[in-house]
Nucleic acid binder design. Structure first.
Lengths: 332, 332
DNA sequence: AATGTTAATTTAAACGTTTAAGCATTATTT
DNA sequence: AAATAATGCTTAAACGTTTAAATTAACATT
């Protein structure tokens, strides 16, 4: 790579010190009282030489990189893909860029990614925490590093977060099924202590209890391993007595739909189904799937804004819980 | 943020110059002949103080950031999401990180993203070029910046690229339809001069011509604008005479399936359909959709490897064309 | 004429690394 | 004993910025 034009080159050509060039390039010519015609000459030469500031040097000096570290479970998952795009755009509007890492829901990977990103001096994090990230999150707090959790949070730790009102989401979905006359309603969830999962299960449970259906409460819990999901899902959809299933995540919904297809089950005749998060597949399944939709745009934008406020020194924690929207179709 | 431990702090504590610390931290203690016990003391203190090197400083000094700029059309699109994930992993294995930008197929955006990334001194790019990126690509060449194009390339410009054998892909798909007895086979493609689109159309055309069906050749061309796609797609699927459609991209396939659903058309009774790129939706559509699959893993890995070779000084261009796989289902 | 004020510019340090070059000291060869 | 080599370390510059402080020049005020 040909070496790039630096502030020195401009200074030399104009016959002036680098300080002046820096002032002008940063629009501080008024504040620093740089002479009118010097300003012009610097601007002109910078233009001629096609000067672009070296952000690395700038970052080293200023101690700030205008970079956000974004850690998601898996960027290949469209749910996180969408969120990332929204975050990217909102960051870009504020002159930040995003460096990206996928944790695969593995707390060792998220820890390793945060360290790598910190070595690169990111100004803060947007983190989708994995199970067991409590320590990581606590250590970020201890080191006074700005961050905001999205999608999930830790009730015992006082952090910024922007999440869905998960309890309300599954409560509403379950209630809809009850209103349709279902009694034996199941929730299929991950075997996870993460708060969003706990809350989704609690929403389902509470809806059942509130309608005096506690005896029918049944939460099928699955470990997040590919083979296991498939086997367990087959078992679950095969059970004759099931009247309805609420899936607790998008991947579980998809896996469930695959199982339903595999086992030649007919929705809504055999039982009802409600999915989680939007997905094109929900539209093409027959019948189209009723699902709980998250306000991704709001979550992403808010997360960036909160993060930037904290990067800029805000101390009080911002904790946002956003409402879901039940998209009503023919599967439940 | 509490200020981090630097090499100076270690040097001070051990009572030695920063040079030695640097050597040890970079595993050059043999080469630079650092004393055995000094090495140990430096290691110990670094550990105690929990030293992590500041990559920004390192980058400034070395002129290399171990960062790849990845520009895709839209990270929210699972096709690019998958590819990004593969690239992220392969980069990570080589100690590189990825900074990400979405161009929205807009050549002004890709130009602006490349500049922003260059200011941050990325070592090279993996670029999914947009229509009109010829200039951008040429300017990267002129400035001697390492990059590799994926998914698309410019036949007139000698660059690295890793792409699908697009011609073979649609040739094969079209031929399958012809073998099934179809004559009036359409291709639905974007109105784009990008090479992958041109090649996909050419593959279709050639398959038709080779079977003496040139009189039936019909390429429906659509501009990549949301409303237009919807309207045109409705028109296209409504035409009675159509016997089969080959969609030229994943988004077109999905849009086509939506139109088919909207217009209450039955596949394969009304006509056959072959889609492009895998998608869960293809599995849930009834019937499951036959589609052209790209070897994403190979594309992503190869792209990273080629890029790293060029970052490390290789001069000759690497141009890779990978074969597609036709996933045969019941829609065509 | 001395002093103070203001405006315009330069100087130089700092950010945290890397690394070529230099300098002692000790060991080996002649 | 002198010359040479090997060992182990330090010095200091460099990367490209930013910015507080110093300097200079011009002008205004006594």
């Amino acid at each position: 790579m040909a070496k790039r034009v630096s502030i020195k080159d401009i200074a030399a050509k104009v016959g002036v010190s680098t300080a002046l060039v820096s002032y002008v390039m940063n629009g501080k010519e008024k504040e620093k009282r740089v002479g009118r015609e010097i300003v012009e000459r610097i601007r002109k030469v910078a233009d001629e030489l096609n000067y672009h500031p070296n952000q690395i040097a700038r970052s080293l000096r200023k101690g700030t990189t205008n970079t956000i570290g974004l850690i998601v479970a898996d960027i290949a998952n469209p749910f996180f893909g969408h969120l990332s795009r929204i975050i990217e755009d909102e960051a870009s509007r504020n002159n930040y860029i995003v460096i990206l890492g996928s944790s695969d829901e593995d707390s060792r990977k998220s820890a390793s990614l945060t360290e790598i990103f910190l070595n690169r001096q990111v100004d803060g994090f947007i983190l989708i925490p994995s199970e067991g990230d409590n320590e990581l999150v606590q250590s970020l707090i201890d080191r006074n590093i700005p961050f905001v959790l999205i999608d999930r949070c830790f009730p015992g730790i006082d952090t910024n977060f922007v999440i869905l009102d998960n309890h309300a989401a599954t409560y509403q979905a379950t209630q809809r099924l009850i209103n349709k006359g279902c009694r034996k309603i199941k929730m299929v969830a991950y075997n996870s202590s993460l708060f969003h999962m706990v809350e989704r299960i609690r929403g389902y449970r509470e809806a059942m209890t509130d309608q005096n259906l506690q005896e029918f409460i049944c939460v099928e819990v699955i470990n997040n391993r590919h083979e296991e999901i498939k086997i367990r899902m087959d078992e679950i959809v095969q059970k004759k007595e099931t009247e309805a299933i609420v899936f607790a995540t998008n991947t579980l919904s998809i896996a469930g739909l695959y199982a339903i297809q595999r086992n030649d089950i007919h929705i809504p005749n055999d039982f009802f189904v409600i999915g989680f998060d939007g997905n094109e597949s929900f539209d093409f399944f027959s019948p189209p799937i009723t699902y709980i939709e998250q306000p991704l745009l709001d979550i992403g934008k808010k997360a960036v804004r909160v993060l930037l406020e904290h990067i800029n020194g805000t101390e009080e924690k911002t904790q946002v819980k956003l409402p879901s929207l039940l998209i009503e179709r023919y599967s439940g």
